[in-house]
Design a protein around this nucleic acid. Structure first.
Lengths: 190, 190
DNA sequence: GTCTATATACCGATAGAC
DNA sequence: GTCTATCGGTATATAGAC
């Protein structure tokens, strides 16, 4: 970090400012895309939130679409064991949603790229979960459980349904865990 | 309706053509809004699908927003008894989605008016369901069940998750009904 | 009543000054 | 490296011809 000979600019190293701007733009993009979705968000909105000039946004990321792609990248989640990751996911969903996830979900119904990203993400989760529970209809039961978590996420963080939003994190996690655990049990086929 | 003196146009009654155009425009609007959402849909798209001139669309409905409002109105569902309506909803969601519901859900994450409409609709369903099941956490359990159905709807008809889309209507309804029935049961509080 | 032409505005993106 | 100015395109919406 202090690899340079002489600091011509006293405090901020010349290229570090650029990197800082780039990061601020990305944060601002996640926030704006997460609030109103890809289409309603303008490059000018993002620039204003980041405190930079609109042209800088495109200078750094090339296009609005490329910036969106960068903004919705999820941190590579570990493959994870099996069914106990259900509790993790549920906890994450009950509390605040990470900015990149929020941006991704906000546009999943209207932007094909976001739709694909969510599909891939959830298909993978379903596969892992199905492998962990076994029994008849394992894939379908796992898919229903994962879809239910998606529905809860939308209900709580985007639609703000009354009884989902007003519940405490603890209550929601407790009751939802019970419900999903029950839902994951194999059923008699009579 | 036949208050006028003489039919100057022989076959099509003068105002009947206008009503027919209006209905065709509304159908086309539901289709287009349901496919790509409110913002990505242009008045020109709707006019093209309806086979009319773009300016006619605004002549009839005043604005794109007013047309959207008309397009997402749900047929007033009866209050309905209680828990057995769960099966109805599930069946509807497993098969095809009505055009106005599809248009509504497609934009529920990006258009405030659609978000509010879905919230009101689901809050009402939750209230009815909660009243029918009783027990501890009735509202929360009902909210989780309704949110799960929403998640399944999104997964099947919008994201097309692998294991949800590939399942037959019968399998999906059977397993989901089992899962939701289990989820709605009161749990021991130990 | 339906279509042509256009007003008005805002968007994404680019070029060039500093 | 950052900002100013602007281009080109497209949208909604309106006014007027037929």
């Amino acid at each position: 970090m202090r690899n340079d000979t002489v600091a011509s600019t006293p405090t901020t190293t010349r290229a570090a400012r650029r990197a800082a701007s780039q990061a601020r733009i990305l944060d601002a993009a996640r926030e704006e895309f997460g609030r109103r979705g890809f289409e309603a968000t303008t490059v000018r909105d993002i620039a204003h939130r980041a405190g930079v000039d609109p042209s800088l946004v495109l200078q750094h990321y090339g296009s609005k679409s490329a910036l969106f792609t960068a903004a919705i990248q999820l941190p590579a989640g570990e493959p994870q064991e099996a069914a106990d990751h259900l509790a993790d996911v549920l906890n994450v969903r009950a509390a605040a949603l990470p900015p990149e996830m929020r941006a991704l979900v906000r546009s999943m119904l209207t932007v094909p790229e976001a739709s694909e990203a969510v599909r891939r993400h959830l298909d993978e989760r379903i596969g892992n979960l199905a492998a962990g529970i076994g029994g008849p209809d394992a894939e379908l039961r796992a898919a229903i459980a994962v879809s239910s978590i998606l529905g809860l996420t939308v209900a709580r963080h985007f639609l703000q349904l009354r009884d989902v939003s007003s519940a405490s994190d603890d209550d929601l996690v407790r009751v939802a865990t019970q419900a999903l655990t029950a839902a994951l049990q194999p059923q008699r086929s009579d």
